[in-house]
Amino acid sequence: MSVSVIRLRRSLAASLGVLVIALLAFSCGPGAEYPSRPVELIVPFGPGGAADVAARQIAELASEELGESIQVRNVTGGGGAVAYNEVVNAPNDGYTAIWSSAALNTLAAAGNIDFNYEAFEHVAIVSTETVTLAVAADSEWENLEDFIADARNRTPTVGNSGMGSTTHLTAVALAEEAGVEFEHVPFGDGLAIASVMGGEIDASVQHPAEIMSQYEAGDIRILAITSPERIETFEDVPTAQEQGVDVVLEQWRGISLPEGTDEEVIQRLEDAFTQAAETDEWAEFTRNTGADVRIMGSEEATEFIADMQQQIDEIAAAAEEN
């Protein structure tokens, strides 16, 4: 056998070895065997609340699509700040996610966290919720126009879930756009509506899940919602825009990961959660809680959240001026 043939064989063997190593490296990349253990989904609020119940529902459905358990853990404190701080500092291996929402936008706008939406990889958005302005069923106000007209003569008291929250900033936006003033009264989630029915405050701005039972019982009247159009749950309730107050603001809920998570991992979770959001079970759940199925993949979700950050920043600045 000639020396040249031997050299050629050695060269081919070496090239094949390099190719095999490259293929092995590719197949063993970050997303190759993901997930190989349960994924933890952190909920920034306490057990039993609207955010927690929704997270557990979508986690169960997405687990079936993912082929691995998604385990929910509640991390409370600071209006969600504690949870977001934990996740932003977690390993970016795809095993720690957060059930994110517009709280991320409002926390950043208020300076309660020292980062914003850009510190995360946003996997998907799976639902949105309108925000409602509600009064007692026996009140004098039949619609938003009545309420605004009264607010031109006095300052009504309007409850919210907490200063700086989505509900508070929605009330700020309504007053700002209408050219009136509200006295903003912070409560915990769902607590303000009891004060409305008791006559302690005039109105409350809340998410649908927090007022659904009172609405169905006929104890409250919803004057307006802040979706871009009417929703099935409150089909007879006009939007703020319909009534001459140009405010569109919705709560969003989705899944986010620490910045720098591998794209294959993001895609794997995006597929699992968006497929889960397409199920009849998720559609029924959202309908029963007053939410809407709204499915966005990673790219669209990131753009949506960025736009909302700009909107929330502007409203928060107006709130500081008042």
Results as ranks from 00 to 15, higher is better:
Asn160His: 07
Ser2Glu: 10
Gln251Glu: 06
Glu183Arg: 12
Ile255Asn: 03
Glu200Ser: 13
Glu264Gly: 09
Ile312Leu: 08
Ala224Phe: 00
Ala317Arg: 14
Gly188Phe: 09
Leu269Lys: 06
Met1Ala: 15
Leu249Trp: 02
Val39Asp: 06
Leu174Ser: 02
Ala110Arg: 15
Ile21Asn: 05
Val5Ser: 07
Glu68Val: 13
Ser204Trp: 01
Arg7Ser: 10
Ala277Gly: 15
Asn89Ser: 14
Gly190Leu: 00
Ala50His: 11
Leu107Ala: 12
Thr279Leu: 01
Ser4Asn: 13
Glu235Phe: 09
Asp292His: 00
Glu250Arg: 04
Phe285Thr: 08
Pro156Gly: 01
Gly67Val: 12
Ala97Lys: 05
Pro208Thr: 04
Val158Trp: 02
Glu33Thr: 15
Gly260Cys: 11
Ala50Met: 09
Gly79Asp: 03
Ala119Ser: 14
Ala306Gln: 10
Ser15Gly: 11
Ala173His: 01
Asp307Leu: 06
Gln309Tyr: 10
Arg10Ser: 12
Glu259Ser: 15
Leu61Cys: 08
Val172His: 03
Pro238Gly: 08
Val185Pro: 01
Gln309Ile: 07
Ile98Cys: 06
Val72Met: 04
Ala14Glu: 13
Val247Trp: 01
Val135Gln: 05
Gly218Asn: 09
Pro238Thr: 12
Gln310Arg: 14
Asp280Trp: 06
Ala32Tyr: 14
Leu41Ser: 01
Gly78Phe: 02
Glu321Asn: 09
Asp246Ala: 14
Gly164Asp: 09
Asp307Trp: 05
Gly290Met: 01
Ile42Lys: 08
Gln311Tyr: 09
Gly254Glu: 05
Gly290Glu: 00
Val87Tyr: 14
Ser204Phe: 01
Gly260Lys: 14
Cys28Phe: 14
Ala173Asn: 03
Ser195Ile: 02
Cys28Arg: 13
Val88Lys: 11
Pro208Cys: 06
Ala55Trp: 08
Val18Ser: 11
Thr302His: 04
Thr261Ile: 05
Pro258Trp: 04
Thr286Leu: 11
Val158Leu: 05
Asp292Gln: 05
Val20Trp: 10
Ile113Phe: 03
Asn288Gln: 13
Ile70Cys: 03
Asp271Met: 08
